[in-house]
């Protein structure tokens, strides 16, 4: 029993940390631009494909690769996706910055569609096996099985999230981002380079999302052009659950969502006497999201802001 609990907890933490990496990108973009970036799930997908490309060009056989080479490929891939993110913002979102609130979201839907079909054309629509970045050793912890892959994912995710925390809270660039997030017009009036802040967000968000994609593909051993859609939706749910715009909120929301999913998968069939199977896991997640929003419209850690001051107001 204890073993099962430990194993399920580690499963939830693994999935939760991957969700968190992606949710951070949604929440930061929302914080700065008040826009839902529907193409963010595709950064997750691009991350896995970029790493796969890097592996097949530079290493070939993953078995013989050293830890240093793998780390280099990992960071090469995520930085490349970060740059793609900045490029997409420049082309598809920046011209729409003074347009309606709906316009950039629709544009991001177009970006998402183009990226998915682009990858489908380049790499084929079928799922591709993905070599794990971590050795597949199994460990026995108090009766539960925990793999090295899971431990590696947890370490990588926490290092990246700590890096983001330091960047946002302890660096000059972070001050700029937080200022723009607080109020773009005021930041602009104070002489802050708003474009730099936005580019920084569109670099670090996709970077973390791509890292999530590589870790996810390592975990499940598979990647596909459409992998970003469902996971992106989950991560976005997590970001709203925690309070969109809030960085700790995105992390908290992700872990709550992951625990709900793991518990739901394990308990739903038992609690409902076999009527509701595991396929209702997503229904449970969305129901919880709607219930949380009814009680706390701003999410768990979000600042409660009245609708009048936030929504449908062009910021000049």
């Amino acid at each position: 029993m204890l073993g099962t609990i430990i194993q399920q907890t580690v499963n939830a933490l693994t999935i939760g940390s991957i969700y968190a990496l992606i949710a951070l990108g949604y929440t930061m973009v929302y914080g700065v631009l008040r826009m839902i970036n529907f193409a963010h799930g595709e950064m997750f997908m691009l991350g896995a494909y970029a790493a796969f490309l890097g592996l097949s060009i530079f290493i070939g056989d993953i078995g013989g690769a050293g830890a240093f080479a793998l780390t280099a490929i990992f960071f090469g891939a995520v930085i490349a996706v970060g740059l793609v993110g900045v490029g997409i913002e420049r082309i598809a979102y920046k011209p729409l910055r003074n347009s309606t609130r709906l316009a950039p979201m629709l544009s991001s839907l177009g970006v998402s569609l183009s990226l998915v079909t682009g990858i489908q054309i380049l790499a084929g629509p079928q799922p591709v096996g993905f070599p794990s970045f971590f050795p597949a050793t199994r460990l026995d912890v108090l009766g539960g099985t925990v793999t090295l892959v899971q431990i590696g994912i947890l370490i990588a995710a926490f290092v990246l999230m700590f890096g983001l925390y330091m960047l946002v809270n302890r660096s000059r660039a972070g001050i700029i981002v937080r200022a723009v997030s607080e109020s773009r017009p005021t930041a602009q009036l104070l002489g802050i380079n708003v474009n730099l802040a936005i580019s920084l967000v569109f670099f670090s968000g996709p970077l973390l999302g791509a890292a999530g994609g590589i870790l996810y593909a390592s975990y499940y051993g598979i990647m596909s052009p459409s992998m970003g859609a469902v996971i992106g939706l989950k991560a976005f749910t997590a970001a709203i659950l925690g309070g969109i715009g809030s960085i700790p909120g995105a992390m908290l929301g992700s872990f709550i969502l992951a625990f709900v999913e793991v518990a739901g998968t394990a308990l739903l069939p038992i609690v409902s006497g076999g009527i509701l199977g595991t396929e209702y896991r997503d229904v449970l997640s969305f129901t919880i999201l709607i219930l949380v929003l009814l009680v706390r419209p701003a999410g768990i850690l979000g600042t409660p802001v009245s609708e009048e001051s936030m929504v449908y107001k062009r910021e000049f």
Partner: peptide, 22 residues
């Protein structure tokens, strides 16, 4: 949903569409 902030509408309707499909 409509009493909530307008941005949530997109995600909640998306989730609702998925719930109906599931």
């Amino acid at each position: 949903v409509l009493k909530l902030r307008g941005d949530y509408l997109a995600i909640v309707t998306l989730g609702f569409g998925e719930i109906i499909r599931i």
